[in-house]
Design a protein around this nucleic acid. Structure first.
Lengths: 238, 238
DNA sequence: CGCTGGATTGACTCGGATCAAGTCGAGTGG
DNA sequence: CCACTCGACTTGATCCGAGTCAATCCAGCG
């Protein structure tokens, strides 16, 4: 059976058969969880490492006034920080978005894995750096891009990540995110997300309906004539 | 002589004399750089690890349209990612803000350090997790806080971090950031930053002038009566 | 003593939030 | 099979926070 975690790490380094077997053994035990189920909550004491094998999850924080901000989406193959247990308590929560299959890897199993298979350790470190880069991109979007650019940028990012774990078919990916959660991710209102999505749709850039995202023109550079002030993406900035 | 890097790591774990000697030897060679000097630029191939020993620096990205977004401030004791060299190229730039003393630690020296002194490795991992948490907080600020809250929150964060490396005296820290760079960090305009700072000042929350920041009421909870919609900070959210 | 990079301040505009109704589709129970 | 409900999506009208444009001020400095 395909293991997206293995696929993802193979995108970073070459893994031998032994590495793969080790990874598969470590992620063997998995639970199936319903949507909107917290894997761990802000304030909780960190436990084992989570690896998403199927479905989607997200990291988020809730402000005292109830507003929520999503800071990352986890799709199959993604996992939480590997040294997570070194912190006294979680600074954010992680919740499933859809029904999801999640493997948990104990601290000791994870340590064994990284010691026994240096390539796995290397891949995990690279993965962490990439995640950190994504956080920075996210900040750039929030701070300096218009709402239309933000939406377009996120769609492209998710599209590319999905293609990395083989989730693309005919320029289309499954995107099981409600407009509410998109709003919480992009720091805007569901109402406004809706209008922006429609505009991008009528303008012919993309199409998001019934959980399916079609990117008609994933080309970074110019696109969409002058209808939108500037390109949704730019080189070197996933 | 005081080494802020040692001070910072000691805040995470207990370090023995040997650990400290090792750290000091590794950061022995340092350069003094002028303000606005790029340590490394987006697109460059990563090299040695940087450690800021004195002065301030920041991480930032520039969009194709010229807009800039600062994603982190580095103060004495802070360093860039330790596995930075695993990436093919930098996804962001790092630049000094003030005149700064910066040590560079080669990959091999860093590997030796982490292998020889497990406590140092542990502290570095914790440090990385904390930095990542800061990025998430930053995203929350950008997405879900009003400009006034954002400013107040950043000031409190910097205040607390400065106090961690012994930079506080009489509720005051040195904050050598122009309103322009604050704007680039908070995703707003220098003009608007200015107005917000004044409001926070007249309201009696803080005072920032001539590079000195005074936080009059660093208390997380309520403060400032009803003049500001809500508290600038909240527990567990530095 | 004029130049230059911040810091200030005012007038005006506009992108998104807010408020308020609908609409549509998948269940659910009678 | 139909009425009812509940969640997600749409759409319009209105308001306001923050950006934009444009001066002005001020201190350090060649």
């Amino acid at each position: 059976m395909a293991n997206p975690f293995v696929d993802k790490l193979r995108g970073f380094v070459d893994l031998g058969t032994a590495d793969i077997v080790g990874l598969e053994r470590a992620t063997h035990e998995a639970r199936v969880l319903p949507p909107k189920h917290d894997l761990i909550r802000e304030g909780d004491q960190p436990g084992p490492v989570f690896v998403v094998l199927d479905g989607w999850a997200c990291r988020y924080k809730i402000l005292p006034n109830g507003l929520r901000q999503v800071t990352a989406f986890l799709m199959p193959g993604d996992c939480c920080d590997l040294h997570i247990d070194m912190l006294a308590e979680m600074d954010h929560s992680i919740q499933t978005v859809t029904t999801a299959t999640v493997a948990t890897v104990s601290r000791t199993a994870m340590d064994d894995l990284m010691e026994t298979y240096p390539q796995i350790a290397r891949a995990m470190y690279i993965s962490q750096l990439v995640d950190e880069g994504a956080l920075r991109s996210w900040i750039v979007s929030m701070g300096r891009r218009s709402s239309t650019e933000r939406v377009a940028h996120l769609m492209c990012e998710l599209y590319l990540r999905a293609s990395g774990v083989g989730g693309v078919a005919d320029q289309t990916i499954t995107l099981p995110l409600s407009q509410v959660i998109l709003a919480d991710a992009l720091g805007m209102t569901a109402v406004h997300i809706n209008r922006v999505l429609r505009r991008l749709q009528t303008v012919g850039a993309m199409d998001l309906r019934r959980g399916n995202l079609v990117i008609l023109d994933p080309t970074p550079g110019e696109s969409i004539g002058g209808s939108l002030r500037q390109s949704p993406m730019n080189a070197g900035d996933v």
